[in-house]
Design a protein around this nucleic acid. Sequence first.
DNA 1: GGTTAAACGAGACGGTACGTCTAGTCTTCGG
DNA 2: CCGAAGACTAGACGTACCGTCTCGTTTAACC
Lengths: 211, 211, 211, 211
Amino acid sequence: MGGTGGARAPRGRPRSERARSAVLAAAAELLASGGARAVTMEAIAARARVSKSTVYKWWPTRGHVMLDSLASVAGGTPADPDGEAAGAPLADALTAQVGALVRTVRDTPAGRLVTGLVAAAQTDPGIRTALDERWVRPRRAACARLLHDAVARGELRPGTDVAAAVDQLFAPVYHRLLLGHRPLADDLAATLVRQLLDGLRDRRGRPDQDR
Amino acid sequence: MGGTGGARAPRGRPRSERARSAVLAAAAELLASGGARAVTMEAIAARARVSKSTVYKWWPTRGHVMLDSLASVAGGTPADPDGEAAGAPLADALTAQVGALVRTVRDTPAGRLVTGLVAAAQTDPGIRTALDERWVRPRRAACARLLHDAVARGELRPGTDVAAAVDQLFAPVYHRLLLGHRPLADDLAATLVRQLLDGLRDRRGRPDQDR
Amino acid sequence: MGGTGGARAPRGRPRSERARSAVLAAAAELLASGGARAVTMEAIAARARVSKSTVYKWWPTRGHVMLDSLASVAGGTPADPDGEAAGAPLADALTAQVGALVRTVRDTPAGRLVTGLVAAAQTDPGIRTALDERWVRPRRAACARLLHDAVARGELRPGTDVAAAVDQLFAPVYHRLLLGHRPLADDLAATLVRQLLDGLRDRRGRPDQDR
Amino acid sequence: MGGTGGARAPRGRPRSERARSAVLAAAAELLASGGARAVTMEAIAARARVSKSTVYKWWPTRGHVMLDSLASVAGGTPADPDGEAAGAPLADALTAQVGALVRTVRDTPAGRLVTGLVAAAQTDPGIRTALDERWVRPRRAACARLLHDAVARGELRPGTDVAAAVDQLFAPVYHRLLLGHRPLADDLAATLVRQLLDGLRDRRGRPDQDR
DNA sequence: GGTTAAACGAGACGGTACGTCTAGTCTTCGG
DNA sequence: CCGAAGACTAGACGTACCGTCTCGTTTAACC
């Protein structure tokens, strides 16, 4: 039975933490300085002062390096809203979630990492699922829970398609990040939340006539 | 002005239509068979039985080939809704627009072309703007006009952010296309339109309290 | 009959003579300066200011580069002895042949090229046969003819194994070149010829008792 | 001090005989199955179920492994001829020596080991000298002694260059082994000895006219 | 009918990065 | 101290595309 003995000391030379973090940093720096095109395995290895074989040993493709780099840059799952925002109005809680995403992809290296990863995901299905599971899904989950609870307590309509609703809050952020057709403005999060919760229809002076 | 005489016949050998269409077809076929990774200038030229120089002469990058290929596959701007749908309820008109996009990217080669182009756009700003101008913007425009008119005639709230609203209808489609976290279901368009127009809030039995 | 019409004008960009000779020169220089170990495809390309693809396009392995380099360094087949040496005593003609080989492999870059090629031949059968056909065999041939003619005119014994005899003249040169156990002395050729033609046995004062 | 003097009992774990022989066997097997190219330190270690560090600890290069492998395969110095063949005719003694070499390199793994070692010797001077001292020289020595004694007792000419003569007997064997231009026939040894001892000249019916 | 001009086909070229391989070295644990 | 395990640096391997180039060969419109 255990003790600390659970994980025996591994046999050979231990993995170099220095190499690991240098690679992730190098990837982020290259992305920042030269764009996605500059992030090659060769350049990563050179910049991190690490041999190419070491990079390939731990990350099969550049996409996987970027995935880990993204994780190390933007931390793990974002703070759970329950602590502070419990009891706060739904709109505020949602706005906080979406706003956090907007600021992260707009103001930190995470933004270019995400665009690079979406690009890589179009070629590599492994990247696609990993990006979904490790980045997109955790952020959607908190939001989806808020919506689900609101439906349960009758604040939102019973027939609400929560997944679609989450997309209507998050997807515009990614869309603008990827296409650049509109800026990622500060009030974007609030606007998206307001329009989705209250709807676009003008109901002044008339009864609610839904469905 | 004009007449047919305006443009004199150009001097040298005329551009080969055969080469042009063969290249665009080759790009689409390669994309369909081997994924974005298979669409290389070399492969396009080989498959189209055209020399590499000819390809480079008319299209600077593989992204530009895919752009033209997309145009030739999915036609130009989608049918303007004014003809048939004038007077139709707003919701139906919007659903038609979004639904057309869903079916196009899900059921035709245009889908993979778009994902490949979004990926290329992350590297090449020229692709990014061209993709926006030639594919995304025309589709957004029809939808934006519908919303704008509805605001003007008082059907939608005065303060509506039309650009954000359009994103809330279209972005989820691209998001699912790129990430694949949810299927592009048949009723997606209707759901998106309904939730956005009517809002998520349950207003049964209470007065409209917006703003 | 043929005329100039035989070789059609080649299509496409013509092969660069500059690249060809630069590669062969680079291989010889590298061999001279750094030994066989230094002759890598990468180094050849770098030194010749030629792209690696170009080297690989024309020479499949480093061995083939060395083969051509050897040919360009040491010319084609050595001068045929018939001109000057016709009528000269057999021993002198043979000594000239063997002596030429000794001087070539000892005093010119051809020596290291040959050792490198013999090494490569142990791994690559293609090199083995090419080295035999393009370097060893032509040199053996002249010598073999001399011996064969001498047998025909009765100067040498009827049962002579010419191939073995040629080996007894040339192989010691290669052996010393490869192993270095003995120097390639100036009089080596003469010694080899004398000992083989006259035999080692001391016959002073006794009749020939062969066989 | 001293104690038992001589060889102190070595500290620590003694060297593993199992590792030593497994490495030598692995080298020979790899050579037999995949040719010289297959004999890499990596493959040797893997096949011998021994860690790479252990191999490097005892043998600095693959050449040295092959050297020891050769020694273990082909035994040490060949049987000294004095025992059985003392008094036998010179030609028979020489033929026995050369014939033994022919059979060894043709019919046992030693052949490929020797070719591999000659190749390695072109790159590594250490291999070159070791190969000479441990393989070539011992075999030459016995032969050289036979010739030297024969000169001393007047059977061979006084001016005989013994080193060159030995080369004229052995070098053809190595030459054919390395180049493969002629087979290593069963009667090769006898032919080489006969032609060298008796000379190629046809002396029937005329006096010896040497020198 | 000859000239001119541009597109086209073929393919060699200098590059860059790929992903794999081998050589050696180094670092830890266990016998 | 030896051996096992295995991570590490270094660098060549052979391949694939890139985008450019240099030719010779059409295919027209023009004079």
